[in-house]
């Protein structure tokens, strides 16, 4: 299998504080990866280092490309639409995506909208939190690319929307694309994860197949994750 992401000795400091150090992370193509860690552990920073939005030390290669502009063309990130004013209509946001991303598939986006029950004539200001997150997921998944980064897609939204989003991930993720989902609702996404990556102590604490946790420790992903903070499971 080939690697979609290779991070080598990546470190990041901000305001004289180390956020991440010595990150080595390799992800294979075609996987769904759960990026777990406490709030402020550096999950978002890790994603920002991959996209090039944060500037750190070390090398990051996405599908073999280390140059940031090229890297971006392989990455679809769940950006929160900060660049649009609240009065912007969804149609305009979609037009922007379609214009600037050559890999944006309008047909797939329409399917996603139907599935997630999105009304594209609405304005951004009139969207509920759950609806906005669905829109972001639809926009992110409508691009046909190699690496999808979903930053906390389930925070603060109801369980029905969560289920819909999980289903759309299974349905629309291209077979050979890799998806990284950062979250702390571990239990709900646990069944769809191939691997888990845990960020702790400013670095990658563990990276292992999800089923290997269940086989080796006989515990669920959530229990395993929590035990790391209590020092319950002895770790190699």
């Amino acid at each position: 299998m080939t690697n979609v992401l290779a991070m080598n000795q990546v470190s990041y400091k901000r305001n004289l504080k180390t956020i991440l150090h010595d990150v080595d992370l390799t992800l294979e193509t075609g996987k769904i990866i759960g990026l777990l860690g406490e709030n402020g552990a550096g999950k978002t920073t890790l994603m920002r280092l991959i996209t090039g939005s944060a500037k750190g030390k070390g090398t990051v290669a996405v599908s073999g490309d280390t140059v940031i502009a090229n890297r971006k063309s392989h990455i679809s990130f769940s950006e929160q639409l900060h660049g649009f004013s609240n009065s912007t209509k969804l149609d305009e946001v979609i037009a922007f995506y379609q214009r600037v991303y050559a890999d944006f598939d309008p047909k797939q986006f329409t399917e996603l909208c139907t599935f997630l029950q999105i009304d594209t004539s609405l304005k951004l200001s009139s969207l509920s939190k759950g609806m906005k997150e669905k829109v972001i997921i639809a926009l992110t998944l409508a691009r046909r690319t190699n690496l999808y980064l979903l930053d906390e897609p389930f925070s603060g939204i109801d369980s029905m929307s969560r289920k819909k989003i999980i289903s759309s991930i299974i349905k629309w993720k291209p077979e050979n694309a890799t998806m990284v989902i950062s979250d702390h609702y571990v239990s709900e996404i646990a069944p769809i994860l191939d691997e888990i990556v845990i960020v702790k102590d400013q670095t990658i604490y563990t990276h292992r197949p999800a089923d290997s946790v269940r086989e080796e420790f006989g515990v669920g992903i959530e229990a395993y994750y929590e035990s790391l903070y209590e020092g319950g499971v002895q770790h190699d």
Binding site: T51, K72, Q80, G83, V100
Partner: peptide, 16 residues
């Protein structure tokens, strides 16, 4: 200035 600082625009695959 906002455009320079927002991922909405900065994530577009184009050179700086």
């Amino acid at each position: 200035e906002q455009t320079f600082m927002q991922d909405t625009y900065r994530l577009v695959p184009i050179g700086d």
